[in-house]
Computed example of a mutant assay.
Amino acid sequence: MNTSQPGLVVPYVATWSGEHWDDLPHLVERPGGAGIAYPDEILGDRDRMGVLWDRATGRPGHGKPQYAKVHPLRQRRAMRKLLCQVCGTPADTTEHGVLWLLRDTGVPCLADMLVTEPPICWSCARLSVTVCPALRKGHVLVRAGSFPLYGVDGIRYRAGRPDPVPVEHWAVPFTDPAIAWTLAAKLVRDLGDRTVLDL
């Protein structure tokens, strides 16, 4: 949990006003039409799958919390390592799976359940439903027995002149060649073998 003031609850994955990244970064087309790149790209700009990620500074606790804006690097770390999205410690895990707290959209999900929200621990789940306005409107607590990495959520680009052009915001699987044209902002998991729980 990030905090700069006593008593202030700021989720681990939230962004602070002292952290910056460009909403429309300057991107170029890779040689041979092989996707997008930063003109000054460094090794840390891509993950081990070769996906290009939003650049963001890491200064948690600096400035004011921006609850609705998820920090791409902390979200990715929490999803990959199955850390609680609120406190950043390991999420609640049993022999039946890992715990997720999701907003209730009112749409039943019988098949795939793609999520960008990292998992959660029990104590943070109880806290979140009381302090988060979006969750107070409705939430679903799910234990997932399977949760493979699916792909990324971000902005898809197309070739353009002089620079690539942003087209749409989408979730793309790692198996789709269009991922080379996607600037990732969040890691996506597919929750399966789900059990709905009650806090």
Score class of each variant (00 low, 15 high):
Cys121Phe: 04
Arg136Ser: 13
Cys84Leu: 08
Arg103Val: 11
Pro119Thr: 05
Val142Asp: 01
Thr116Asp: 12
Glu117Thr: 15
Leu83Thr: 03
Leu141Ile: 09
Leu99Cys: 00
Pro90Ser: 11
Gly145Phe: 07
Val98Ala: 05
Arg103Gln: 15
Gly58Gln: 12
Arg55Leu: 03
Pro72Thr: 05
Arg55Ala: 04
Ala68Gln: 15
Cys132Tyr: 15
Leu52Asp: 00
Cys87Tyr: 01
Glu117Trp: 01
Val107Cys: 05
Ile155Val: 15
Gly151Asp: 09
Leu52Trp: 05
Val98His: 03
Ser146Met: 11
Pro133Gln: 08
Asp112Asn: 12
Pro90Cys: 08
Gln66Asn: 09
Trp122Ala: 02
Pro148Phe: 08
Val140Ser: 08
Leu135Pro: 05
Ile155Phe: 03
Lys64Phe: 08
Thr94Ile: 05
Lys64Gly: 00
Arg126Ile: 07
Gly151His: 08
Thr89Gly: 04
Asp153Met: 05
Val86Tyr: 04
Trp53Thr: 05
Asp153Glu: 13
Arg143Phe: 05
Gln85Met: 13
Arg76Cys: 00
Arg59Ile: 00
Lys81Val: 09
Ser123Cys: 06
Arg143Asn: 01
His62Gln: 14
Gly58Lys: 10
Val142Ile: 15
His62Cys: 08
Gln66Ile: 14
Tyr67Ile: 10
Arg59Thr: 07
Ala111Asp: 13
Ile155Thr: 13
Leu110Ala: 09
Tyr67Arg: 12
His71Met: 14
Arg80Thr: 14
Arg136Gln: 15
Gly97Arg: 04
Ile155Gly: 02
Ser146Trp: 08
Gly88His: 01
Thr116Pro: 09
Thr116Ala: 13
Ala68Met: 14
Cys124His: 05
Thr57Leu: 08
Gly145Lys: 10
Ala91His: 01
Arg59Asn: 14
Asp92Glu: 11
Ala68Cys: 10
His139Phe: 15
Ser146Ile: 06
Val142Arg: 04
Asp153Pro: 04
Pro108Phe: 00
Val70His: 06
Pro133Val: 04
Cys87Thr: 06
